[in-house]
Amino acid sequence: MADLLVEQLSGFGLATIMARKGVSGMAIGMALGVEAPAQPAFCRGENNLALIGTGAGSWFAHTDMVSPAWHTALRDRLAELASVSDQSDGYMLIRLSGEDARTVLQRGAAIDFHPEVFAPGAAATTVIAHIGVVIWRRDDDARGRPKYEIATFRSYFDSFRRWLDHTAAAL
């Protein structure tokens, strides 16, 4: 029996943040009250806001519980510091947890998910089954099992689910 839980998440918020010229990650982090990681990583701060490193000088802002004015509030806080684009509708989010979650990811992406290499707080933008994905690892669940979240573009979602279901069936 495979130890894998697949959940489609809703109610989250995502936005692209790209630093303006000469603005450091630190300045952006200070404006938002969260660490803005310089490498691919998932950094959670207070107020249910996280920053995920997606490139040099660019991040996803992430919240588990979005409100209609969330991204405009972000934009206001980052005025002059960064360009902000709402992406809450552009992506679908899937959560994979359980002992077999790592195997599923390892069957999809050509990056190393060994716990020493991809520990809680790690993140990566890569590709699974020809579909672009952003993957980050949350803290382990209450039973100490790994928990990952995968963002894919909305239009690819059905194709991604087909890959996920076929791969999970082979566990």
Binding site: K21, S85, Q87, G90, F153
Partner: peptide
């Protein structure tokens, strides 16, 4: 040297 940022929002709308 230009201060300009760009990101795809094809899927957002």
């Amino acid at each position: 040297e230009l201060d300009v940022q760009a990101t795809s929002v094809t899927e957002q709308w």
